[in-house]
Design a protein around this nucleic acid. Structure first.
Lengths: 199, 199
DNA sequence: TCCTTTGTTGAATGATCGCTCAAGAGGAAC
DNA sequence: GTTCCTCTTGAGCGATCATTCAACAAAGGA
């Protein structure tokens, strides 16, 4: 399945993945329009021409950053918890605890990239808004299944719970960006689970 | 106490308060550097010279916007609830319910100005971060009082609860900005109160 | 009426924005 | 070696950024 196709022409002089990681960090910390091409080329160690040849324009680079983030641990932990944890309670508990850890990971900027990288540009803003809103639907689906399977009481409202957990998660991202520690966010996660419906 | 001092020179041709309100709306929707002087002058109906004469530079105008916001209902509802509600439970309940209403008020942009108006500029960002973090201390103080008065059990942790409610409130602001309705946020507020400690 | 004071105006400042392009450089194919 | 293809380089594009300023306008005080 691998494509051994020999590269023609002059080979790139920089590590594309490393450059993308540098761009990710900048967008994560300073947002979309808060990050200039000048900032990017300096952090990536390349000149504007190389950036545009390798990634297209600024918007395409940002899209690629978001895509790569979605496939990274920091962007994937929600789905991972859903897949691994046996019960819905365990899944949401795990999601909030993982969020507390990932949002304060010293290796990466604070918070969730999708929440932190604010954008004034309308296209970019709605693009990120849709990605953030996607978690509501994901949460609701899992909670609906849990109710059908009897884990949740019939009176529980999957939609309300999904909206609640999304709000808590996004609030934790903001708190992390504002300097909250992993311990504080972990405490918040535990408190948030009190909303879990009881029979 | 009023200063009737007669104004010398040419009087201003625009309503300063109305211009400030227009600026507030722009910053609220598009953030600090997402709002240009050109945007501001167009919305305020004045020329750059008048803006700089009346408000100083962009940063001073933004500071004034934040100050005015803090004295408005949208920025004051937390303190108002603290002052009016008899019990801590009632106060936090009221705060979350008010947040649900204010963050989705059709008269103003969605969410909390202090959360929505993102800024990449370091000075502005830390300025707003401090204002957001202030609510944690305020919450903690009220909760500590509640524990001393016996409303909260001795096992309750005011600091953890304060961090939790701050996270929920900021998360609700993000949800409002992402299109959540007043009904959804009200449901989230009610669910969030489940974390209130019981004896 | 003239002076002083303050506000408005329109043009223009240098800096930075995202982005492009011709020229040169370094590999593989022939 | 020559050709072909891709990447890099450095200069520079027009647009927009926040900001300034001299000239003009409108008020009160003299």
């Amino acid at each position: 399945m691998d494509t051994p196709e020999v590269r023609r022409g002059r080979p790139p002089t920089f590590d594309r993945a490393a450059a993308l990681a540098a761009a990710t960090r900048l967008f994560w910390e300073n947002g979309y329009e808060g990050t200039s091409i000048n900032d990017l080329t300096r952090a990536m160690g390349i000149r504007p021409g190389s950036l545009y040849a390798a990634f297209g324009d600024k918007r395409s680079l940002f899209n690629e950053v978001i895509e790569a983030y979605g496939r990274s641990p920091a962007g994937e932990f929600v789905w991972a918890a859903m897949a691994r944890e046996p019960t819905a309670f365990d899944a949401f508990h795990r999601i909030l605890l993982d969020a507390a850890a990932m949002y304060t990971d010293a290796e990466t900027p604070a918070g969730n990239l999708l929440c932190s990288a604010a954008a004034a540009d309308t296209d970019v803003a709605t693009y990120m808004r849709d990605l953030r809103n996607a978690s509501v639907g994901t949460f609701e689906k899992r909670l609906t299944t849990a109710r059908q399977e009897g884990e949740l009481p019939a009176a529980a409202d999957p939609r309300k719970l999904a909206a609640y957990f999304t709000a808590v998660m996004h609030g934790m991202s903001q708190r992390a960006r504002d300097g909250a520690t992993a311990a504080e966010l972990t405490d918040t996660a535990e408190l948030a689970m009190a909303a879990w419906p009881t029979r």
